[in-house]
Design a protein around this nucleic acid. Structure first.
Lengths: 337, 337
DNA sequence: TATTTTAAGGTTATCGATAACATTAATCTT
DNA sequence: AAGATTAATGTTATCGATAACCTTAAAATA
């Protein structure tokens, strides 16, 4: 590998002069600048970021930890984060925890050893607290995405989960539904709790009873075992006329399960959910959803993170951004008024 | 930040002893080992990968450069790559070129300065050649994914594009279609060229004429201007009864365009394409596709890359893996026999 | 007992870049 | 013209970890 010293030797200057040319610092005569640049081109010199990071004590690397790389909500979010990072000259590392605390823990280790300058985290849930405390202890700035974690104060970008869920429920009610069930992510995740509350609020505001047998709690993430969900569906007697899914992945899984058992959507069962499906929703505009502004989650979160990094030392108050969800009505709900 | 020296001082040993404890090398008495470990825990020590990389001349970082992070083909591929990387103790950086040579070039710079140990690249196309030459010149091992680039010899994982396209066409023909058009990615991309050939082969094998007015070439990537595609559709007179799309993104865009103009799919136009749609194909099993083994692309590519890195110096012959595509028949094609 | 061997640890140099300080020679000031 | 300033460049120390070599005391061997 060509180093700054190789350049220096060939150009008959000191390494420091080469460094100055590279970084455009100090005073360098036009002649030497040109000479050094020529030699750099000749030898195909590329600076060693590793060495730089060591002395500068910053890597210009940021990290985005998401919980499901197959979920269009997160890939769209990643796009936003990437764009914002690039704009400020940072590079971005991605990690994918699969809603799994152990994988998340591995990534936290990676983050700490790689000495990234900051992290954007969609935490797996409340038990992520020690991971965040670890980041805090090691002075790594971070911004939370989509989920709050009780016990830690920090910058955060949230969706208005309660309101979104309530609107989904009221949409169903407006179309005549009176028996509405819910599949949700783990109650150790703040957004799942709020979506449940929104669901309950929606029922209460319309004088409908809340029956916990009509609520099933599982994981937001890729599900490997659907037998429990199947049993839940069997247990509901009578079947509801509609189901609210806590996110897009759950909606897809429930729908598949229902169809496998001959229960058509939307003919025999209506389904709505949180989060849109990215480009797929264009090919068959099917699911009625409370779409979150995924790109904005990433973009604004990244902006907050970078601001936090740059204002290091000064103590800005923690910021909290709450983005509303848009109700997009398509055809997964049957009008039974 | 706590360093190895802080640990050494507090434990009354030398830095080297601490290093030995961390890496389990050399001979250390149980007593000192325990003492050092205790101090490391007390001070929350985390090794500095930056310093390590500098002296070891390796970062244990790999890079995956894809061309469209919103495309389920690539996110699935990324999952495979991630799993394989993790298995061998490597961390993975992602980049997203958006089928854009300039963005690709930026990522190549990032890759070189970050001194990653190896790269998995889905190149933007034939003009990516200088980028690959740059990697080669700097001795960065790489494996190509999905697309060949004339002029460079290297390890590569490909799909059987020609065969897949031919089978899509013959499927259409079997269902009575005689007038079949094609939207394709740029002819500067090897897989686009092969898909076009497969399309032509399919026609020829069935004694159907090839008419280049029925072929439209654009980009595989996110399209921002659809007017040209619109004009192409208008120009075709009479309209074909079916369209083969070079990939899933194109299929979605064409379908939207057709539907906007009142041409229903599959009632008035049949559509098939390369690459499946990930989870979405489960919610509305609609598009008939030649599904590529996306996960395997990533997994096997990563394995090849890691092998290449580990056998550095020895000169293994270049390997080429060709994965077949699976024809998945759904309901986007109308039977008109 | 004298000599090797080994276990357990320490010292020093190094990776590639940059910050801080030092050195020249030329230019400016009064 | 003598000292002060400045432009242009060089020297040395440093970031945190590890490789390669060195030291010492105890254990093993002849």
């Amino acid at each position: 590998m060509v180093t700054i010293y190789d350049i220096a030797a060939k150009a008959n200057v000191s390494a420091m002069t080469v460094s100055r040319v590279i970084n455009n610092t100090g005073k360098i005569s036009e002649k030497t600048r040109a000479k050094v640049k020529r030699v750099m081109e000749e030898l195909n010199y590329v600076p060693n970021q590793t060495a730089r990071s060591l002395v500068l004590q910053q890597t210009k690397l940021l990290f985005l930890l998401i919980t499901d790389i197959m979920n269009p909500f997160y890939t769209t979010l990643a796009r936003g984060a990437e764009d914002a990072a690039k704009k400020s000259g940072y590079r971005l590392l991605f990690g994918n925890s699969d809603e799994n605390l152990e994988k998340e823990s591995d990534y936290i280790t990676t983050i700490l050893t790689a000495r990234v300058d900051g992290v954007l985290v969609a935490p797996a849930g409340d038990p992520s607290l020690p991971h965040l405390e670890s980041l805090r202890r090691h002075n790594v700035p971070f911004v939370l995405l989509d989920r709050e974690v009780p016990g830690i104060a920090c910058d955060i970008v949230l969706g208005d989960s309660k309101d979104g869920a309530r609107r989904l429920v009221e949409h169903l009610i407006a179309l005549g539904h009176r028996s509405i069930a819910m599949v949700n992510g783990s109650s150790s995740i703040s957004s799942a709790r709020l979506r449940l509350q929104g669901y309950q609020d929606g029922l209460k505001l319309n004088d409908l009873p809340y029956d916990e047998r009509y609520v099933y709690e599982t994981s937001f993430g890729p599900l490997n075992d659907l037998t429990e969900m199947e049993q839940w569906i069997e247990r509901m007697d009578p079947l509801p006329t509609a189901i609210v899914a806590g996110n897009n992945v759950l909606a897809i899984e429930v729908m598949r399960l229902l169809r496998d058992r001959g229960i058509g959507v939307p003919e025999h069962m209506s389904i709505v959910c949180f989060d849109d499906l990215g480009p797929y929703s264009e090919i068959e505009p099917f699911l009625t959803v409370a779409a979150q502004q995924a790109y904005q989650f990433g973009y604004m979160g990244m902006q907050m993170l970078i601001e936090r990094i740059q204002e290091r030392g000064t103590s800005l108050p923690w910021k909290k951004i709450v983005l509303p969800a848009d109700l997009i009505i398509r055809r997964s709900v049957k009008d039974i008024t």
